[in-house]
Design a protein around this nucleic acid. Structure first.
Lengths: 147, 147
DNA sequence: GGATAATCGGATACACATATCCACTTTCCA
DNA sequence: TGGAAAGTGGATATGTGTATCCGATTATCC
């Protein structure tokens, strides 16, 4: 239900948050997130245009978050690359009623709203801070001290 | 976020439920739901294989629901044409931990679960029974008595 | 200022979702 | 028994998401 692009964008941003505020090169992000490098660069370009990250060319350059992980929600990232398509008017396009949705589409939109809400309520900092055995992104880099 | 196919399938099934238990021809369904007729027939074939509807050829034939609207949930229909892809293991494929999801994917899966739950809790009968000015599918066929 | 490191943007390839068309089969009924 | 109504399945087109490649551009360091 979530596109590959959204998945990749989230992985990249979570990795950047994990290393924040140090910039990471596309190569580094690709290696850590297991995202195809060439495609990742396109996804990052999108995040760049949406002002989620900023990039810097040349030696020592790379990509870094614009805001701090505690100020950035999952929804911010998702909306940047592929906004959740809420149903705002009848998909059949009939004008027999204005903005009012029929019961079917009302329920579909409610489901979309619940996803939006869940994503809006979680910051990247929270994702990283969560106590768990599995580090975000499931990298090998496990915390050996806890086990 | 929901594919066209899912949208079309739901429209078709809601229309069938609305006319239940009378069978409807593909032409009739297409006209009522504003779904491209040729594509709709493919979608219906899928619903047929999933035993959501049954079809009958020849004069007087058509498509009808297998179960009654009160026994059929939105989730049943969605799962028939394009099951909600829950995240059951780490998308990165690493085996550093078993079935445990990292915080990021845990949250994404929770969002999917909330959609699944919402769809599981609604039967087609409920969609049709809901008191509203706008009839399901937003058809012209409005209830003129309420306004 | 030249070598190197890095992103940017265009061109292209490929797979899959969406959509259309048509010949074929089944079923009913006159 | 023949014709009309209706779904079935295959072939094909089209669009979009995913993915790759590479030359151009920018920035840093020596």
């Amino acid at each position: 239900m979530f596109s590959q692009t959204v998945e990749y964008a989230l992985r990249a941003v979570v990795h950047l948050a994990d290393r924040s505020p140090a910039p990471q090169t596309t190569d580094q992000i690709a290696a850590a997130t297991l995202v195809p490098k060439a495609y990742l660069s396109k996804v990052i370009q999108g995040l760049c245009r949406a002002k989620i990250v900023q990039s810097k060319r040349g030696v020592g350059g790379g990509v870094a978050l614009v805001k701090s992980p505690s100020e950035l929600t999952i929804l911010d990232v998702v909306n940047a690359v592929e906004p959740i398509a809420r149903i705002r008017h009848c998909p059949l396009g009939l004008k027999t009623h204005g903005v009012r949705l029929c019961p079917l589409h009302r329920r579909m939109d409610n489901a979309l709203a619940s996803v939006e809400d869940a994503f809006r309520q979680t910051t990247l900092a929270e994702v990283l801070a969560e106590p768990t055995q599995s580090h975000p992104l499931c990298e090998q880099r496990t915390k050996t001290k806890t086990r």
